[in-house]
């Protein structure tokens, strides 16, 4: 399991959020937007570790748990896919509007244990959001990590998130390869067409000195994990994140349990061996 960090910036009451301003909105895909947030006096609301979560609210509408996908000197970012009433309210926000956030919550990717390893990041759809926080971390501490492969897939070329990172920023990084696949191409798409699990098998990674970070829709995680195990990866070396419905984010409200674990507190980061220990209720 990842390392736990409970340095919450909640002024003493972890359930009361702080106000933040949306300073930039990026339309990633037709249904995903990235929101850059900053406190009204221009500061970073909190400094999450890669993989940690924030409970973000459109005040008066509701709050939802999202992965903090990136952070800078004085901002943090989350990417939100439109799936229901709350996320639609997020998509209606304009730059300059205020929302609220509490966190950071949950454990985080084991950045220490990954040191010295070659890393394979595998993302599907919006699942690249949590992975991106760790990719960025590794790029910032590039000398601590070995070769980096980023494998990413989405339904179609339009549905690829973080296009600037995928096509411009990351391929330029030292010792880094970006491999992209889509379920269905279009007239202009020249890259690979096919599902992520099959593509991963095609790329024929050897498990030696490698760690895999795998996030995406449950079905994609299932088939990709099976492919990785077939390729000889140990379950301890495949790290993923879980999603559950959440309310409190601090292990109190009981909403997000899988067996005796609370995903909001003990997760969201687990390796496949740890997931095998949990009851099958994911």
């Amino acid at each position: 399991m990842g390392e736990i960090n409970h340095e919450c910036t909640c002024h003493g009451n972890p359930l009361v959020p702080q106000v933040v301003k949306v300073i930039k909105i990026t339309q990633e895909t037709p249904d995903v937007k990235t929101f850059r947030m900053q406190t009204p006096d221009g500061k970073k609301p909190f400094a999450p570790l890669p993989g940690q979560l924030g409970m973000i609210s459109v005040v008066g509408v509701g709050e939802g748990m999202f992965s903090i996908t990136a952070q800078g000197e004085d901002w943090i970012e989350s990417s939100i896919k439109k799936v229901g009433m709350l996320t639609e309210a997020f998509h209606e926000l304009a730059e300059g509007q205020e929302i609220a956030i509490r966190g950071p919550y949950g454990n985080h990717f084991p950045v220490e244990a990954l040191k010295g390893k070659d890393l394979i990041f595998i993302g599907g759809g919006i699942g690249l959001a949590p992975v991106r926080s760790l990719i960025r971390y590794c790029m910032e501490h590039r000398e601590d990590y070995g070769h980096i492969d980023i494998v990413y897939g989405s339904r179609s070329p339009e549905d690829l998130c973080f296009k600037e990172d995928l096509f411009q920023n990351w391929p330029k990084e030292k010792d880094t390869r970006v491999e992209i696949t889509v379920d269905r191409g279009n007239e202009t798409w020249e890259g690979n067409v096919g599902f992520v699990p099959a593509y991963v098998e095609e790329l024929a990674f050897s498990p030696e000195n490698k760690k895999v970070i795998l996030c995406g829709p449950p079905i994609m995680i299932k088939f990709t994990s099976e492919a990785l195990v077939r390729m000889g990866f140990a379950k301890e070396d495949v790290i993923t994140t879980l999603e559950m419905r959440m309310k409190c984010g601090i292990g109190k409200c009981g909403r997000c349990n899988i067996g005796s674990k609370y995903v909001c507190l003990d997760g969201p980061v687990f390796n496949l061996a740890e997931l095998d220990e949990l009851p099958d209720e994911k």
């Binding site: 359930l15 005040v59 008066g60 509408v61 509701g62 309310k247 109190k252 409200c253 009981g254």
Partner: peptide, 18 residues
């Protein structure tokens, strides 16, 4: 002890409750 969190709006103001 399970609880839900919800909001109750009155015009431009409101209350968060569990």
């Amino acid at each position: 002890y399970c609880f839900d969190i919800d909001s109750d709006n009155h015009g431009a103001e409101g209350t968060k409750f569990r």
